[in-house]
Every structure is written in structure tokens, then in C-alpha cells.
């Protein structure tokens, strides 16, 4: 049997189409691995079934998420981030990420802490981790 992938159109994923922006600053120098990761903390739906088998679907509106942006420490983004004292604890950062398929936004991102820093003879990287009160992922 012909597999779907053979009959369907071929697709292109180009990492150069991904745009990451924090407080208006675009990520201009990244690392070798993932540009970002985004993970929602809670399930949207919890199912509960009672002893008789009657079910309940509980809708959860908690859109808490963790977004990590992996940047080079020599990027404009990281330099600006430190310089603008954006690491102030109450600051609410705006993160907008656009991939060819998704659009991930949050305007309530808090910078968790200054991440682990190091210096050696490898390209310096930093994993900027944000906790978001609300994040939203939609189709691009």
C-alpha cells in the first residue's frame, strides 16, 4: 500500500522562518540546538469518572506556561536584556514567537532567574527561562 507521505505533497521546514522576539528585540544569534521550547503546565481537560461510570469533563483555563529561549550570549537580545535591567523581578516581558506553523505569545512572562553562565572555549549560550501567567498558541 502506498503510504500517505508518498502521495502527499512534500513540505519544507525552514528554521530561518522562525522569529523570536522578546520585548521587541529579535533573536539574532542563537545556539546549535532548539531555538526555543514552550511547555504548558496544565492539561486543558481533566476527566473524572465516578464509581458508576458517569463522567465529568472539567475544563481548565489555566494557561500557565514555561517558555525557554536559547540564545547565544553574544546576541543582541541577551545583551539588551541584561543592560535594560529587564531582569527586574516584577517586569512583565512580552514574548512573541512565530514559526511557520504556530504563533506563540505571552505578555505576562517573568524571567525566572539569571540562568547558569559559564565561559570556556565553546560558543557561549544562555537558556533564558520564563514563567508565563498566560501563554497562547495559535495557528500562524
Amino acid at each position: 500500500m502506498t503510504s500517505l507521505t508518498q502521495t502527499a505533497q512534500d513540505h519544507t521546514w525552514d528554521i530561518a522562518d522562525v522569529i523570536i522576539e522578546i520585548d521587541g528585540v529579535a533573536l539574532d544569534l542563537a545556539t546549535t540546538g532548539d531555538l526555543f521550547t514552550c511547555s504548558f503546565d496544565q492539561d486543558n481537560i481533566t476527566i473524572s469518572v465516578d464509581v458508576w461510570g458517569n463522567g465529568m469533563r472539567v475544563i481548565n483555563h489555566n494557561a500557565e506556561a514555561t517558555i525557554t529561549v536559547n540564545s547565544s550570549r553574544m546576541s543582541n537580545m541577551w545583551r539588551k536584556f541584561l543592560k535594560n535591567e529587564n531582569n527586574e523581578r516584577l517586569a512583565e516581558h512580552k514574548i512573541n514567537i512565530l514559526t511557520p506553523m504556530e504563533r506563540i505569545t505571552s505578555s505576562s512572562a517573568s524571567f525566572i532567574k539569571i540562568p547558569d553562565l559559564n565561559a570556556g572555549n565553546e560558543a557561549p549560550t544562555v537558556a533564558m527561562q520564563f514563567k508565563c501567567i498566560r501563554a497562547d498558541a495559535a495557528a500562524a
Partner: peptide, 30 residues
């Protein structure tokens, strides 16, 4: 912010345009 914070250079291509689009979307979504 987008205009001022990106090394004084936003290229006139889809990357540059989407930088604006992204910000607009972010505000409306909020």
C-alpha cells in the same frame, strides 16, 4: 521598540515584516 532595539537594522523581507506582525498580534492577543 522593534524599530529601535534591533541594531538599527530591520531588513525589508519577511523576517522584518513578521517582526512587526508578531508584535501587533501579541498586543491584540493580550
Amino acid at each position: 521598540n522593534v524599530i529601535l532595539q534591533n541594531n538599527g537594522r530591520i531588513t525589508y523581507d519577511n523576517t522584518g515584516i513578521k517582526l512587526f506582525e508578531n508584535s501587533i498580534y501579541g498586543v491584540l492577543n493580550e
